[in-house]
C-alpha cells in the first residue's frame, strides 16, 4: 500500500471509529474525513470521549484478530495485541456504564475497517504498516483525550492505555526494520 493510501486508510479508519463510537458524531456525514484529533475535540464530555475510544479499541481487536488468524505478526503478537486491546475495551466499557452510557456495537467484519482486508491479505510487512498507521491514530486520539478528560481516574486509564499502544508501535516498527522510538514526545501527530 502506498503512503498516500495508508494515510487515506488512517483517516477512514479514524472516521469509522468516530461513527461507531460517538453518537453525536455518528450523524455527521463528514465523519469519514475527520481526524482523530477533530473527533476528540468535538467530544465535549467524558462519556463521549470514552465511547469514541471504545470504538477504536474494538476496531483494533478486530484488526489484530485478523492478523493472528493469518499469522501476519510474528511470535504471537497478533493474539497478544488483540487480547490487550480487548482489555482496554473492557475497562472503558465498564467506565462508560458507570457514566450511564452504553457501549457501541462491536464491528465484526474486517471490511468495516478501511484498509484492513487488504492488509490482512497482504504480506507481514503490509499488515505491520497498516497496524502502525492504526496505532499512531489511536495514540493521537488518547493524546487529545488527556487534555479533555475531566475525571482523573479516566485520565489515568487513558495515559496507561496510550503507553501500551506506544509499546505496540515499538514491536511493529522493529518488525519492519524501523527506528522503534523515533520521537521524544509521542503524540501520534506528524509521525
Amino acid at each position: 500500500m502506498s503512503a498516500a493510501g495508508l494515510e487515506r486508510s488512517r483517516r477512514e479508519v479514524v472516521g469509522l471509529g468516530i461513527a461507531a463510537g460517538a453518537t453525536a458524531l455518528a450523524a455527521s456525514t463528514a465523519a469519514p474525513l475527520l481526524t482523530v484529533s477533530d473527533a476528540f475535540a468535538q467530544a465535549d464530555d467524558d462519556a463521549s470521549i470514552v465511547e469514541a475510544a471504545i470504538g477504536l479499541e474494538q476496531q483494533a481487536v478486530l484488526a489484530y484478530t485478523a492478523a493472528a488468524k493469518g499469522d501476519k505478526l510474528g511470535r504471537g503478537s497478533g493474539r497478544l495485541f488483540a487480547r490487550q486491546e480487548q482489555e482496554h475495551a473492557d475497562v472503558l466499557i465498564a467506565a462508560l456504564k458507570d457514566l450511564g452510557g452504553t457501549a457501541p456495537e462491536r464491528p465484526s467484519n474486517p471490511r468495516e475497517i478501511p484498509g484492513l482486508a487488504e492488509a490482512a491479505a497482504g504480506s507481514q510487512d503490509d499488515f505491520a504498516r497498516f497496524a502502525i498507521e492504526f496505532e499512531t491514530a489511536t495514540v493521537q486520539a488518547y493524546y487529545e483525550a488527556t487534555a479533555r478528560l475531566k475525571d482523573p481516574k479516566l485520565l489515568s486509564a487513558a495515559v496507561s492505555i496510550m503507553a501500551n499502544e506506544a509499546q505496540h508501535l515499538v514491536v511493529l516498527r522493529q518488525a519492519i526494520g524501523q527506528n522503534p522510538s523515533p520521537h521524544a514526545f509521542v503524540t501520534g501527530q506528524g509521525e
Binding site: Y142, Y143, V159, M162, A163, A166, L169, V186
Partner: peptide, 11 residues
Amino acid sequence: TAINANEAEHV
C-alpha cells in the same frame, strides 16, 4: 503524557 509514552517505548 507524550513523555510518558516515550518512556514506555524505551521500556
